[in-house]
């Protein structure tokens, strides 16, 4: 019998190997999320909503009730679900295009209303599923299919600072963090805290995850890793941005 890789208990094994491209960060984010679900023991009441974009491929990823929604509309679907049955743990999973462009009004208003849901937004700096167009998060100078000579901030602005925006419009009770697939232990910790925040009924929780897209970045393994570990954090600061009533990571003994 071949050795099976260690998978979270909440993963749906019969749909593995998963459908994401080699080197894609989604599998890592979903592994960290699976571990968080396992550790919190919420597989029976979690509802996973995935957006359209590469995240749609996660529609059968977990042994968790799952809804595949429309592009940008996962936040309101999970909001409606949570409002109708507060015992469920609502997880809205989306990309940077879905969350910061077409669905930004939903993200902003759900955050402002302090909806008791958890939004996980995977930032790979461009639209993956549609073939690598510019996203709100594309870095200055970064080449994409719609910025073939590099993103010009004079014409198209600077990368959206999502968690900073969410932190600015939420009040006490919200949890906001930015993690990265380059640090999975930290990422799992953030996702767990985000879910715990919802379980405690504190308020909105939001985790942006810096991720990879070697297919559209046209990078090899080494370049991909360099991009996510070194380049992205220059624009997107990794860490906890807002923690309800408590200390941020690393402040405990500071």
């Amino acid at each position: 019998m071949s050795v099976q890789p260690a998978m979270p208990k909440s993963w749906r094994v019969d749909t593995k190997p998963h459908k994401f491209c080699p080197g894609c960060g989604h599998g890592l984010v979903l592994k960290a999320l699976g571990q968080a679900i396992d550790e919190l023991g919420i597989q029976d009441r979690a509802v996973f909503g995935c957006d359209i974009g590469c995240s749609l491929l996660a529609w059968d990823f977990f042994n968790v009730d799952t809804i595949q929604t429309h592009h940008g509309r996962t936040t309101p679907v999970i909001t409606g679900l949570k409002r109708a049955n507060p015992n469920l743990i609502g997880i809205a999973y989306m990309g940077d295009g879905g969350g910061y462009a077409i669905g930004s009004q939903h993200l902003v208003n759900a955050a402002a209303r302090n909806e008791k849901i958890t939004v996980i937004l995977v930032n790979n700096t461009q639209y993956g599923m549609t073939g690598g167009q510019m996203a709100p998060t594309t870095l200055p100078g970064q080449k994409t299919e719609t910025t073939p000579y590099g993103r010009d901030p004079e014409k198209t602005g600077y990368p959206t600072q999502g968690p900073e925006m969410v932190a600015a419009i939420t009040r006490e009770g919200a949890y906001v963090a930015r993690g990265t697939v380059a640090n999975l232990r930290q990422l799992k910790n953030y996702l767990k805290k985000a879910l715990e925040n919802q379980m405690a009924g504190n308020g909105f929780s939001f985790v942006e995850v810096l991720s990879t897209c070697p297919t559209n970045w046209r990078t090899n393994a080494e370049e991909t890793w360099k991009m996510v570990e070194q380049e992205l954090p220059k624009y997107f600061k990794v860490g906890e941005i807002k923690v309800p009533g408590g200390q941020k990571e690393g402040e405990a003994n500071g």
Binding site: P76, G80, K82, A84
Partner: peptide, 8 residues
């Protein structure tokens, strides 16, 4: 979409 969520 929230109505959809409520139904779900």
């Amino acid at each position: 979409f929230t109505t959809v969520g409520g139904v779900l």
